[in-house]
Amino acid sequence: MGYLGQIFVMAMTAIFIQNFVLARFLGLCPYLGVSKKLDSALGMGLAVIFVMTLASAFTFLINKYLLIRYDILYLQTITFILTIAALVQFVEMVIQKNAPALYNSLGVFLPLITTNCAVLGVAILNTTAFRPDGVTAYNFLDSVLNGFFSGVGFTVVLLAMAGIRMRLEKSEIPKSMQGMPIALILAGIMALAFYGFMGWKI
């Protein structure tokens, strides 16, 4: 399998087989909280893809050239979360200054992303992940791509959820099932559908 093939496997794994939300249970707060409207779901999704890609790049470099080199891996959690927080703050400032239109659509979601466990999750997973062959550890490009694809996987299910929930508003739901319970059961059915992708050998 060539490198392009491995990237394809990585993309399919991150988006369908080991979906961040439905199989790994990461990023559930925004998944359940920001999926009431389609356009806000899209904004959140794009912001998450952006931050996850950047965070993967930065945390990979920090892990390799600081934490491993000086043998201070026990500081991993604290450095990663501070890096992500600083990154989100920085991205927010840059976008606000240079692209006001983009800021208007993404801005409100950015502060929420620091506490999105999918971002910290992908950063930590990248440090222990292996290529599809099960032997080679991720290099810089692998980590960045994995961050990007995982973000895409998050966005795909977030959009699907938002689409379903918008339709759901028009249907009659028993009072005690309204809101969170029905959203959770919906998520369960989606997870069941995504189970069909598991064990899919590419």
Binding site: L22, S176, P181, L184, I185, G188, A191
Partner: peptide
Amino acid sequence: LAPGAFITLGFLMAL
């Protein structure tokens, strides 16, 4: 399994 997690919590919350 993963789907069961969502569905169980959904029904518990409804309860």
